[in-house]
Design a protein around this nucleic acid. Sequence first.
DNA 1: CTGAAAGCGCTTACAG
DNA 2: CTGAAAGCGCTTACAG
Lengths: 344, 344
Amino acid sequence: MTSEQRRARRVTLLDVAREAEVSRATASLVIRKSPLVADETRRRVEAAMDRLGYVYNMGAAGMRAARSNTVGVIVPNLANPFFAEMLAGIEQALEGAGMVVVLANSREAPANQETILRRMRERGVDGVILCPVAGTRPALLGKAAGWKLPVVQALRHVSESECDYAGVDYAGGMRQAVEHLRALGHRSIAFGTGGPVHSAYRERLAGFCAAMEARGLDPGVTIELPVAPPFPPEAARRLIDHPARPTAAICFSDVMAACLANSFADAGVAVGAGFSIVGFDDLAVAEMARPRLTSVATFPGEVGEAAARLLLSRLESPERGDRRLISLTRLVARDSTAAAPARD
Amino acid sequence: MTSEQRRARRVTLLDVAREAEVSRATASLVIRKSPLVADETRRRVEAAMDRLGYVYNMGAAGMRAARSNTVGVIVPNLANPFFAEMLAGIEQALEGAGMVVVLANSREAPANQETILRRMRERGVDGVILCPVAGTRPALLGKAAGWKLPVVQALRHVSESECDYAGVDYAGGMRQAVEHLRALGHRSIAFGTGGPVHSAYRERLAGFCAAMEARGLDPGVTIELPVAPPFPPEAARRLIDHPARPTAAICFSDVMAACLANSFADAGVAVGAGFSIVGFDDLAVAEMARPRLTSVATFPGEVGEAAARLLLSRLESPERGDRRLISLTRLVARDSTAAAPARD
DNA sequence: CTGAAAGCGCTTACAG
DNA sequence: CTGAAAGCGCTTACAG
């Protein structure tokens, strides 16, 4: 279809105005539901719109009004359910405000992220919700500020200040996990880490160490794990043979926890009674694993919603101070944790 | 920020042209990388753009050119990893073509879907990739055609004809599953269904029945299951006590299969040796479950990519005939299926 | 409450 | 290869 053919068909506001025998400005007021228009006029215009099959052109409107009602969302890994849930939360909140999501997947690469940001500027998004990739240069946020592009960080953040952020009290979550295990009698607790190093990584790790130390426990037993299957079959062995003789492990994510649990099962150790495992995020897999995984819920959908609200409020008041919305976690106890086994 | 403040800062093509001492049309040609511009002129214009911090305004360009380089993607359930993977495939393919995804979640409700479609028209998307909700009226596609809005259906379809479609040979997948079990000696095979009834549902069911009948087996043993956890603990019992004494089950999805497997384990029946279970889609959960799930891979990411390619080709040639891209499935044998137990 | 005019930032013919 | 003019479809002041 050439652009001429397309355009030839297009019904514009002027057509509607003529059909309804009013001016273009009046027709525009009707569309925007202004109270300035007489009821009878409004009805006439609406009837004309129906008759002509008029479709509002937000692009043209936005160009004049310098607004696109569009928000860019940049996630580091679209296929990860954690981010998919955050995205769903964002979409729902923005949809309710009449805004639309322009989506991009940075695939955890800083270069992609920069390209995406430039493209989003060219498309005139009103703001961006950014889940920054590991290794994002802090200067990026300053640049965005210079561009007058409102940015809200979600789930991860690049710098402590200078930007709105909707996140999770990861350290609090780690405290809950450590406390849960301690109350069950565990004293030697390992930490399963892995994946790219970003603020959420650092906060979980620091939170674990702080919580352990606060209870006089050694935070030094860690095990590096891959973030996704397939999983090294010897993972459990490494913990079983560890000189610190850990009786439990807290993992960075539910996927890691589920895989580690499988590794223990394969090694003939009963998860729960024999070795306790705590996951993080409480995704669907925690409920589906056997034994069901005890996990620290982080509610990514709600964080997404909070990020959307932060952005909407920023668009309302561009000059307000930066805000940080940190949601609390909740430990969901299931079957992968149990009292520490008696040791000789 | 008022629109005036915003606009005051904006650097336009005219500014660039003046700075580079050329006309606006020439500057426009440089942006669009036209070969008509002399190298020296091009360099001058590019330097001016850099100096001024010029940002291309795609909205304005699109308005004149009647193109937005934007594609609407409508998924029925964003939080479902199956659709998240499709989305990732779409995003990657469109990104490579310089297009951007406008995302909407219909939440499996026809009313939402209609609203979304209207909004996408207003935003002037160049086309839509639609994963239609169950219960979509077939007239919808005709309406879209009347609007001159290119639509590609993905993973599900509303009507047999009149629209591009990127999908999966679900029937073939069912044939592979049935054949796999039959080769292992199973004769009584149950079918685990559930969830909304759409084309993918019907094609899986019909495919199962056809494959069973082709082998002289009874396709009548079905069990209704929920699509997500929590799962009814008695699910396995219903199959164990079934008069047809099934020795295996094929499920609609991996999640259902994993849950059913757990239900068997809870009932003390070893999945694999005692009862065989086949999942569908081969999502990450299949690899993570214990025993690992035998599953029919449907590659939703590749289907998304195919849908994106269909849409791009449709934008190239609006008058070409409708195309259907049906990708093949692959059975991935793991540990949840084994030889049928000997029966007395 | 309604109308005529200008302008948002670009591209598209049309001349030269 | 470059320039001057018109126009994409809307909203925004400004009059009345």
